[in-house]
């Protein structure tokens, strides 16, 4: 187990370095125009530009700039906003909690609603509900998150006037964004859970459980569900990246003041350090999350560890 964890940790660190190289290259080499010009404005004279170059270390060789960049990242320095002249990490620290709340709410809905509805879809004898769930989840996979958000906003906010369509003032303004962000995942969780419950239903260990005289519901909750949940948990882990991308789009639709809105505003202002660093933070969270999921998975399922050695 320890060996597996070390191996995954080494891989993760390598990937983090790779990501930092890509983002560094994007930011310092391919950026159209000169960052110094973006900071000082179009009218700045040559000596000002040179001074800024010197201050930012832009006159040094590329690999030195990269070391400075990563050293700064390690210190938690994510650069300075062109537009607001503020450290990006401060702006991110302000925006993060809102995104965190939104994502957490979405994951809670995903798990609770997805699992309950998945069990229901498996247990129900009503053909129509089963068919509706299958068709609905197939359909939802192809729906863009932001469009779903607009539909909900239109229906519940504008037409029925039940819930606020934007902002972060009340608990109620969280409801629509959270539903938007979780809806597609809920549909997939239902489908995966239902399928894996069905695949397991004639497994030997369930036969044993039934032979012991357990009732069907005891068999379901004590034995069948435990194994059927593994693919579901895998999916929820894998889905985390889509959740973050979805959060960016959802925040834009609902004006939810998180990282997504920060990125959109930065896009409008061409505030490149803010865009790149925000995405860097999201990607790093995603990588670390995947690392933890893998470790937890290897801990729970010895086959994963063994498989890792073969590969």
């Amino acid at each position: 187990m320890l060996k597996f964890a070390f191996k995954r940790a080494a891989q993760t660190i390598f990937v983090l370095f790779g990501v930092s190289i890509i983002l560094f290259l994007v930011m310092y080499v391919v950026v159209p125009g000169d960052p110094a010009r973006a900071i000082a404005g179009k009218k700045a004279d040559k000596s000002t530009i040179k001074a800024i170059h010197n201050k930012l270390g832009l006159d040094k060789p590329l690999y030195q700039q990269y070391f400075t960049y990563t050293a700064n990242l390690a210190k938690g320095d994510l650069g300075t906003s062109y537009r607001y002249r503020r450290p990006v990490q401060e702006m991110l620290a302000e925006a993060m909690p809102a995104t965190f709340v939104l994502a957490l709410a979405a994951i809670i809905i995903e798990v609770i609603l997805g699992v309950l509805a998945g069990i229901y879809a498996y247990v129900t004898k009503i053909k129509f509900i089963d068919a509706a769930i299958t068709a609905g989840s197939a359909f939802l996979i192809s729906v863009p998150v932001f469009w779903l958000g607009m539909i909900l906003q239109y229906t519940f906010g504008i037409r029925l006037n039940l819930l606020p369509v934007s902002g972060n003032n009340y608990f109620t303004s969280l409801i629509l964004p959270a539903i938007t962000l979780s809806a597609i995942s809920v549909a997939v969780v239902i489908r995966i859970l239902k399928t894996s419950l069905k695949e397991n239903q004639n497994a030997d260990y369930l036969l044993v459980a039934r032979a012991k005289g357990l009732s069907e519901s005891q068999v379901l909750y004590k034995h069948q569900l435990k194994n059927a949940l593994i693919p579901t948990i895998t999916y929820i882990g894998m889905d985390f990246g889509a959740l973050m991308t979805g959060a960016v789009a959802t925040e834009i639709v609902f004006n939810w003041p998180g990282v997504g809105l920060l990125i959109r505003d930065a896009i409008l202002e061409r505030d490149i350090p803010v865009i790149i660093s925000s995405i860097l933070v999201l990607v790093v969270i995603y990588i670390l999350f995947n690392f933890l999921v893998d470790i937890a998975y290897g801990y729970l399922n010895p086959k994963v560890r063994a498989g890792e050695k073969v590969a």
């Binding site: 891989q11 390598f14 990937v15 790779g18 990501v19 890509i22 983002l23 994007v26 391919v30 950026v31 159209p32 990246g241 889509a242 973050m244 991308t245 960016v248 990125i263 896009i267 490149i272 865009i275 790149i276 995405i279 999201l282 990607v283 995603y286 990588i287 995947n290």
Partner: peptide, 24 residues
């Protein structure tokens, strides 16, 4: 495959956003 790992580490729309920032 290590290079592929790095690219797979990006949720790909976020990756595309980064590139679009610098592309015409």
């Amino acid at each position: 495959m290590r290079i592929v790992d790095i690219f797979l580490a990006f949720p790909y729309i976020l990756g595309a956003i980064v590139l679009m920032v610098v592309l015409k």
